[in-house]
Structure formats: C-alpha cells, structure tokens
Amino acid sequence: MAPRKSASKPNVSADELKTYYRDMLLIRRFEEKAGQLYGMGLIGGFCHLYIGQEAVVVGLEAAAEEGDRRITTYRDHGHMLACGMDPKGVMAELTGREDGYSRGKGGSMHMFSTEKRFYGGHGIVGANVPLGAGLAFADKYLENDRVTFTYFGDGAANQGQVYETFNMASLWSLPVVFVIENNQYAMGTSQKRSTSTPDIYTRGAAFGIPGEAVDGMDVLAVKAAGDKAVKHCRAGKGPYILEIKTYRYRGHSMSDPAKYRTREEVQKMREEKDAIEHVRELLISGGHASEEDLKAIDKEIKDVVNKSADFAKDSPEPAVEELWTDIVADVTPQNA
C-alpha cells in the first residue's frame, strides 16, 4: 500500500487502534462470509455488503456515547456489528432463522435492536432520514441529551424528504448527525451522472446546517469528524452533516454485475486506500503491534465469524405460527 498521511495525526492509543482494526476486520470478514452463504443459497433476496466502507461506522461509533441512537438504510450489517449487536443474531437473520434479530421476519434489510439503540435497517431510499430526525426529536422532547446518527447514501441525498427533514431538523434544532456515506455510486449510477453539484455536504447550507467532507477511508479522520459533529449536536446547536467519502468494493447488491465501473478502479481503491490496511500499517509502523499480534486478531475474528455462520445454519426456520405474530401489539413495546 502506498504511504498515506492521516488527516488527523495519529494521536491515538495502541488500544484504540487495535479496537478499530478488530472492529473493521470483523465487518469485512462477516460480509465475506455473508457473500459466501449467499452463493450457497443460504441467504436469499437482497443482500447489500458493506465491504470497503468499514471505517465509516467504526469511526463514528468511536465518537458515540452510551444512549446515542443510530438508524440506516439497507446496507446495514456493518452498522449493526459496529454498535455491538451479536454477529450470530445478525447472521441468523440473514439466513431467515428463528434466532435472528427479527426472528427471521426482517432479513438483511430489516433488523433492529432497541437494546443497542439501533433502529433499522430500512429498505426505502431516503425514508430513514425523517425517521432518524424523529428519534432525535424524541430525545430533545424528553431532554435526554442524546444524539442520533442518521446514515444514508449519496443516492438518498437526492430524495425530497431528505430536504424536508433538513428544514425541520434545523428549524427545531434537533440533535441529529446526518451521515452521508458517499460511496460514489447510487446502485449503478455514478454521482457525476446523478448529482448536480459534487459536494453534498454543502446542501445543508440552504437550511443553516454546517457540514464537512471527510476521508472515509481513514478511520481516525472519521472519528475526529464524528467527535466534532456530536459536540455540536450535544451543545444544542442543531443538526450537523458529515459527507463521508467512501467506496464499496462489491456490487450494489449480490446480483450486481458492476459494469458501471472498471475492475481497475476497484482494484486501485483496494490497493491504495483500504481502511483496514491503513490501520494495520499504523499499528506496525508505530510499534504498537507485531505481525503475530495481528495474525492472532485475524484468527480470533475468523473464529467469531465462522461461529456466527454455523449458528445461522443450525438455527431452525421460524415456527409457522410466527406468520401471525407481531402484526399488532397488545401492549406498547419498549421502544425508547
């Protein structure tokens, strides 16, 4: 990998770096395994992998505090793992089994954990943006002093409801960080072909929302930007926009032949910008870890992922009675 300077000087402890390395690696290995299980027919339907974008969620989770909330779109496996949801439960939901987070009734795009304050997993592009602002609205109303991370893509950034939400979030000073994960392609349409102005983070300006672009292949830069955004929200100054420039290595979903970009373009990103390799290099060059230490982490992660796959294969399909449960609630589920 070509040497690269981190946007923020690595004023960061060895333990933190190792945590980032481990968390990013978990997402990558988990997603590779999910792709494999998809190929075997164990996972069906749509399956959108997060490979390449790991530094975004890992960096922002490092900026989050206990009680903060997060909500995202359908490319959601990374967000769930990064906020501490159990890989076994996530993988078992991917295989549509009883032990999945939604007991097999949600699938790849629809998982939730009120315990980890993860509010989905939404399949309609842009729809999770007002929902995230609504979660932040509740925190402000209840005087909770919490922040909601609302993730969406460069594609969703062209949906009208995003701007309806920007307006109200700013008008009402809602504590929400709008995280635009700009992976440069809305399914197969490049940002150049879909977006009139290249800098999406400036689109908050019309509503008085500050924003900035962040190198999403650098977990330390993401963490630093996250800290700044969270501080802004917690100070009662309203929403903040982070446009995080990232890249997905895989297709939009499993069935994407990816003819809209060259193999060389993907290869170049992988070789020169990979977020995990970056942290790996910082660990080695800083003398924080040896090759052996990292190998041990690799092995540990591989083990976690394999166990989650075995668990997801062994878990039974949901009981047929599940077809008729959870349609309406008799009592209010504990949401907050």
């Binding site: 987070y101 007991r103 097999g104 009734k105 998982m111 939730f112 349609i327 589920p333």
Partner: peptide, 8 residues
C-alpha cells in the same frame, strides 16, 4: 413491529 420481530 412485524419486521422487528415484535421489538419496535
């Protein structure tokens, strides 16, 4: 409610 297996 359904998609979350009754959680939300």
């Amino acid at each position: 409610l359904y998609m979350s297996g009754g959680q939300m």
